[in-house]
Design a protein around this nucleic acid. Structure first.
Lengths: 337, 337
DNA sequence: CTGTTAGCGCTTTCAT
DNA sequence: ATGAAAGCGCTAACAG
């Protein structure tokens, strides 16, 4: 036997469907005993409201769409965790759509969500958000995270430039002078901003106009490759600042291979503070990933309920997390390997 | 102006809504020029089909619900990644619902998905699946992952007993005899099975009937605490087998604190092979997490389309991943810290 | 090939 | 307090 519908319940309770709806949704204008009868009937039939029909009729899906780029593991789980926590606290579901490379995919993903969600959280550091918004279903509120934001659309950004500057100053402060930067993939907003911050800071605080920059792509392998190239090229550096933690880890692996000690000979720093960074004692800039996810959902749901000003861009400053890969100070024991 | 509906497009193209539907859904019985006119009108109005209405009318949501326990970061992202990949390849969305502790939450989460999804993937190692299924919306196909499966329901399981046995034999094979096990939370299926496998294997292969078992809860802190207790108690062991990687990491931290060398004095092993395990050179049992997620979705969608036999339980054997925390053989350089 | 129409399951006026 | 009926936006017979 198929799932019971509201009509089955109505028949069973010998009332109209309207009364069932009222009874089950806690309306006031219904007699207590009528409600009881309805509840009993629903219970008996194992009735569960059809959320799809409900949202069509109410024009409210109680779901928010999440469109993400192909994120690395820990970053992904952290941001989704943050969103999920906030969403379920507010009675919303999360409809996921990891998207891949190009704008077309993204647009497709967005369109597929129309009529399923009340709003969107879009993270697309590698795309033109303006172009994206243009192809977005109209009238669907959205919060952009780490996007090349058009002004006017609510957006959450990480202060990558400031973060890179902080890191450079930390490295300079520990006596490093020849600092190389390994970049993220070209076209990626975070990568570009971190690079810009690095350049700016090196010029301003170290008087270096043309610091060493190695191309990368946020993957561990790219970090290792860049480091090997650096060593093979005989470049003399005393610090490597990678645009994210995964690459920094790659750098460390390559340095170990080459017998270069960290941080004695070369200091290594990353960006993001993914959980694994802590175990590897990697100095990095902590980005409150889960917090940003939660905040994006908060802003979106506030916007949906009319509350909260759809205040435009909000900037989040990452925090410097100093660990052993840039300071020899505290010698720690090591798990032998 | 609100989003255009199919009627707006019909009016614009001067055809009936049926024709619009046909044109946009690639039906055959429609003249090419009519279709062109419809497509043009849709384009002009920026029409995007309302997925909610569509699924109500077709009785097909093209979405699958995912109900997960509160998983640790890497495990979570891996399994969701596996599901997402498979789901989007098959034109399905993922509706997420991380659930917390009790059965009530889980039931609530499940009911909230009725009418939004075509099927469910449920992972609930800490709950009674039978009880859960009873409270599940009827007629909604489901695949259970790591659940106390009722026979009859499609299920995916990890061979925890066999995995634990493999690990114990590996440890015995490297000359360890006094092996302690740190368990997961009580009531958790994986935890219980791993413990059972440990006991069984110790009895069978080491002739130990009552091996040392320390209670834990899958968290890093629990691993550290158990280890500290072990040391404080003056117990003499030469290996610690933690029921998951996070706890194994906690063990290693506590051992380092206490100045105990790994693996010389005490070997450490975990279970799961989360990515961080690799960096820490932790010996562990590799569970193909993403693969299981993908497979769950595959089985579910096959079931939805009538394809594939809803074959009941499927068991996946984890693989032993030997690394440095159990073998002193290959000395590796270390990133200084 | 195209249009008319009856739902999908629910909420919500509008009467009563 | 309750019921009848009109949609929400779309698909799918059923007629032409």
């Amino acid at each position: 036997m198929a799932q019971a519908t509201i009509r089955d319940v109505a028949r069973e309770a010998e009332v109209s469907v309207a009364s069932v709806s009222r009874a089950l949704n806690g309306a006031e204008n219904i007699r207590a005993d009528t409600r009881a009868r309805v509840v009993a009937a629903a219970e008996k039939l194992g009735y569960v409201p059809h959320a799809g029909a409900r949202s069509l009729s109410m024009a409210r899906a109680h779901a928010i769409g999440v469109v993400l780029p192909d994120l690395h593991g820990e970053f992904f789980s952290e941001i989704v965790r943050g969103m999920d926590k906030e969403a379920s606290a507010r009675g919303f579901h999360l409809l996921l759509s990891n998207m891949h490379a190009d704008l077309n995919d993204a647009v497709h993903a967005l369109r597929a969500m129309r009529g399923r969600v009340d709003g969107l959280v879009v993270m697309a550091p590698h795309l033109d958000a303006a172009e994206l918004m243009r192809n977005m279903p109209q009238n669907v509120p959205a919060v952009l995270v780490n996007c090349r934001a058009d002004q006017g659309t609510p957006a959450l950004l990480v202060d990558n430039v400031g973060g890179a500057d902080t890191m450079v100053r930390h490295l300079l402060g520990t006596g490093r002078r020849a600092i190389a930067h390994v970049t993220g993939p070209s076209g990626n907003l975070d990568a570009e901003e971190r690079l810009a911050g690095f350049r700016l800071s090196m010029r301003r605080h170290a008087g270096v106009d043309d610091p060493l920059v190695l191309p990368g792509d946020f993957s561990e392998e790219a970090g290792a490759a860049a480091t090997r190239a650096l060593i093979a090229g005989g470049q003399r550096v005393d610090a490597i600042f990678a645009a994210n933690d995964m690459m920094a880890i790659g750098c460390m692996l390559a340095l170990r291979e080459a017998g270069v000690s960290v941080p004695e000979q070369i200091a290594v720093a990353g960006f993001d503070d993914i959980p694994v960074a802590r175990y590897l004692h990697l100095t990095t800039m902590r980005v409150p990933i889960a917090g940003i996810g939660a905040l994006a959902v908060t802003r979106l749901t506030d916007q949906l309920s009319g509350r909260g000003n759809p205040a435009a861009t909000e900037l989040h400053a990452p925090e410097l997390e100093v660990r052993a890969t840039t300071t020899a100070h505290k010698k720690e024991g090591r798990t032998r390997t």
